[in-house]
Amino acid sequence: MKLLILSCLLAGCLAQKPRPCSSPPLLTGALAMSTQKENMWVYAKYLYDEMGQRIRLMERGTYENKTFSYDLLLLYREATVYEIHRHNRTCNKMPLKGVFQPMAIPKDASLLGQVILGSSSGPGEGLLVNTWTGDLPEKAGKFMSTVTEFGCIPVSTLFHTDRFGWMVLSYFDNVIGILDPQDLIPPPYCQHCGDEGR
């Protein structure tokens, strides 16, 4: 009898409808991004700190058949972005326009579906994910985001705006936490860099 009750409770828990969620407040990983209209492709390592509203992007890519690389530290609370040049120990300090957007599925998003990526044939062969759709902030466009059912770890996001068309982000090698918090603080040689565009 106890086994039957436990089985029913477990089945009830597994049958719950997915709900909007927030990703862990500290994440490290990598992403690839491509755009439809801008002919751009980017690969980046990222560090994400929701509590401090800080993001570090170490990226390289191509734009209109030209290669580029950037090391950017975005400090939303200070409305500042640092472009860091480690090879010659210099920085450019610029104003950061925009509001910090947490890695989360908004409460008003609509569930598109729940699927298993990979296979459900054997243990460890698949990943249970939820895909959500909705409007970007201030109705700037639409989005479709896929996150893991357990942990709300980002898998992919598609945005659509009139200006850029479709933008596709694929996340991988995600790890909860940040190995070296110093990576989210401007290096000492950035203390004397000039402000650009202020």
Rank of each mutant, 00 (worst) to 15 (best):
M40C: 05
M40L: 15
W41A: 14
W41T: 14
V42K: 11
V42G: 08
Y43R: 12
Y43P: 00
A44L: 08
K45N: 15
K45I: 02
K45C: 05
Y46L: 14
Y46W: 11
Y46P: 05
L47F: 06
L47Y: 09
Y48E: 03
Y48F: 15
D49S: 10
D49M: 06
E50D: 15
E50C: 11
E50G: 06
E50T: 11
M51G: 12
M51W: 10
G52P: 08
Q53D: 07
Q53E: 15
I55W: 07
I55E: 14
R56Q: 10
R56D: 07
R56A: 11
L57V: 02
L57K: 11
L57E: 13
E59G: 15
R60S: 14
R60Q: 14
G61R: 07
G61A: 07
T62V: 12
Y63D: 00
Y63Q: 12
Y63C: 02
Y63R: 11
E64K: 14
E64R: 13
E64T: 03
E64V: 04
N65V: 01
N65W: 04
K66L: 09
K66Y: 07
K66H: 11
T67W: 08
T67L: 05
T67H: 02
S69V: 04
S69P: 00
S69F: 09
Y70R: 13
Y70D: 13
Y70S: 11
D71H: 12
D71Q: 05
D71Y: 08
D71W: 06
L72I: 01
L72N: 08
L72Q: 10
L73K: 05
L73M: 10
L73C: 06
L73N: 05
L74K: 12
L75G: 00
L75E: 12
Y76E: 01
Y76G: 03
R77A: 08
E78I: 00
E78T: 06
E78K: 12
E78W: 00
A79P: 00
A79Y: 01
A79F: 02
A79E: 10
T80R: 09
T80P: 07
V81D: 00
V81K: 11
V81H: 01
Y82K: 01
Y82H: 06
Y82Q: 03
Y82L: 03
Y82M: 02
E83L: 10
E83Q: 10
I84C: 04
H85R: 11
H85D: 13
R86A: 13
H87F: 13
N88H: 13
R89I: 00
R89S: 14
R89K: 15
R89D: 08
T90W: 02
T90A: 05
T90G: 03
T90V: 01
C91N: 04
C91G: 04
C91W: 01
N92Y: 10
N92I: 12
N92F: 12
K93W: 00
K93L: 12
K93I: 13
K93Q: 10
K93S: 04
M94R: 14
P95G: 03
P95T: 01
P95R: 08
L96I: 04
L96V: 02
L96F: 06
L96N: 06
K97Q: 11
K97C: 00
K97I: 08
G98F: 03
V99W: 01
F100T: 01
Q101G: 01
Q101A: 08
